[in-house]
């Protein structure tokens, strides 16, 4: 299995010279099995770059299928949806899987994103591809093609986000972004269960540990939280993810160095365009 990062930036897309190495696009991650089947997590602005790379596949000809998992519907995780080219090719079959936000549904939320006030698309019904919105309950297990997925709800500011444990090709990738545990230094039992033995743990690392106190309650983790989960769950590698919009390339380099000094688990900061062989 291969993981490719198309957007790694949290909250806000950042352009400019200081963000070129790690990238400024908001979250979007592609998983691909050895035989070429794909799964996408989140549709931040990175999805616009993913879309370009898919034009040479069946999705560029209107004969493709693609399952997409959404961790949640905060804008930085869906703002690439209206510009994801496979939606505009008739014949594609795309399914979007996520949890209903409190008090509304996943479908109503995405409809609202495309409402005529906000988008010339006007609504999901105007996407040319066949698009199905499939809500699930946190804790449900999903089987999407070759991908076997376990899900769990995690605390994230005023809402809950969904974390995923994804198995394919005999490998495990765990995705825990946009999470803030009650105590980041104490490994959260649910997170540890989801990450147990993972070949790669992709974890929210928005805040340097020494800045976390200023930003407690914003819904994101300090770097030490991902290390605590990876350690308790015996993960083989850790990818720091959801970089702060203000973190320059040099600052992320420094963050990685100080994080690696805390653990013997190999870790790296996810960088846009890069991929990891699992």
């Amino acid at each position: 299995m291969k993981v490719r990062f198309w957007g790694v930036r949290g909250s806000f897309a950042m352009s400019g010279r200081e963000f070129l190495r790690y990238g400024g696009n908001t979250p979007c991650v592609e998983l691909q099995t050895d035989d070429g089947q794909r799964l996408v997590i989140d549709l931040g602005t990175g999805a616009t770059e993913l879309a370009k790379s898919l034009m040479g596949t069946a999705l560029g000809k209107g004969t493709g299928e693609l399952p997409i998992l959404l961790t949640h519907t905060h804008l930085d995780h869906i703002q690439g949806l209206p510009f994801f080219t496979p939606f505009f090719l008739e014949g594609n079959h795309i399914s979007i899987h996520g949890v209903d936000p409190d008090g509304t549904s996943l479908e109503a939320t995405l409809q609202n994103q495309l409402a005529p006030h906000y988008s010339p698309l006007g609504g999901l019904e105007n996407l040319s591809a066949h698009v199905s919105i499939e809500a699930f309950q946190p804790g449900d297990r999903l089987a999407l093609g070759p991908f076997k997925i376990r899900t769990a709800a995690m605390p994230h500011a005023t809402m809950r986000t969904t974390a995923f444990r994804i198995e394919a090709d005999g490998k495990v990738v765990t995705f825990l972004s946009d999470v803030e545990y009650p105590d980041p230094e104490a490994p959260d039992p649910q997170a540890v269960a989801l990450a147990m033995g993972a070949d790669l743990l992709i974890h929210d690392a928005m805040h340097p540990d020494d800045e976390y106190d200023l930003r407690r309650g914003w819904g994101h983790s300090p770097v030490c939280a991902g290390i605590a989960v990876a350690t308790a769950a015996l993960c083989k590698r850790l990818a720091l993810f959801h970089h702060s919009p203000d973190a320059t390339d040099d600052q992320i380099d420094a963050l990685v160095a100080s994080a690696q000094a805390q653990t013997s688990i190999p870790l790296f900061a996810a960088a846009e365009g890069s991929y990891v062989e699992i």
Binding site: A13, S15, R17, F19, T45, Q79, F83
Partner: peptide
Amino acid sequence: GSYPVPGPQTVRYGGQ
């Protein structure tokens, strides 16, 4: 227009 575009192709004119 349309959406922010970070990256090496928009450094001089800007992506916001």
